[in-house]
Computed example of a mutant assay.
Amino acid sequence: MSVTIKDVARAAGVSPSTVSRVLSHHPKISPATVRKVREAMEALGYHPNIMAKSLVSKSTQTIGLVLPRSVEEFVNPFFSEVLRGMLACAQTAGYDVLMSSANSRPEELESVNRMILGRRVDGIILMAPRKADPLVDLLLEHDFPFVLLGRSLERDDLLCVNNNNVQAAFDATRHLIAQGHVHIGFVSGPPDMVVSEDRLEGYKRALAEAGLPFRQEWVMTAEMLQAGFHATSLMMSQPERPTAFVVIDDVIAFGFIRQLYEAGLRVPDDVSVVSFNNIMLSELSNPPISTVDIGIYHLGYTTVQLLIRKLAGETITQPQIVLPHRLIVRGSSARQPDA
Rank of each mutant, 00 (worst) to 15 (best):
D7C: 06
D7G: 02
R10M: 10
A12P: 11
T18K: 00
R21K: 12
V22I: 07
H25A: 12
P27M: 07
K28S: 13
P31A: 13
A32I: 04
E39D: 11
E42V: 14
S54L: 12
L55N: 10
V56T: 10
K58G: 03
K58N: 13
K58R: 14
T60D: 09
I63G: 09
L65D: 01
P68K: 10
R69T: 15
V71C: 00
V71P: 09
V71I: 08
V71H: 08
E73T: 12
S80N: 09
L83E: 06
A90S: 15
G94W: 01
S101M: 12
S101R: 12
S104F: 08
E107F: 13
E107K: 10
E110C: 03
V112M: 11
L117D: 13
L117G: 02
D122F: 07
G123W: 02
G123F: 11
I124D: 00
K131I: 12
D133L: 06
L140A: 01
D143I: 04
P145G: 05
F146G: 04
L148S: 12
S152D: 07
R155A: 11
V161I: 13
V166P: 01
V166M: 08
A169M: 04
F170L: 08
H175Q: 13
I177G: 07
H181Q: 03
V182C: 09
G185P: 02
V187W: 09
S188K: 05
D192T: 14
M193H: 13
M193I: 14
E197P: 01
E201V: 08
Y203V: 06
R205A: 08
A208W: 01
A208F: 03
A208L: 09
L212V: 07
E223V: 04
M224R: 08
F229W: 06
A231H: 02
S233I: 07
S233A: 15
S233E: 14
Q238K: 13
I248Q: 07
D249S: 14
F256R: 08
D270K: 03
S272C: 12
S290V: 02
S290Y: 13
V292L: 00
G295A: 06
I296N: 10
G300Q: 06
L306G: 00
L307P: 10
I316C: 02
Q320N: 05
L323T: 10
H325T: 15
R326L: 05
L327E: 00
V329M: 11
G331H: 10
G331R: 03
A334Y: 13
D338S: 15
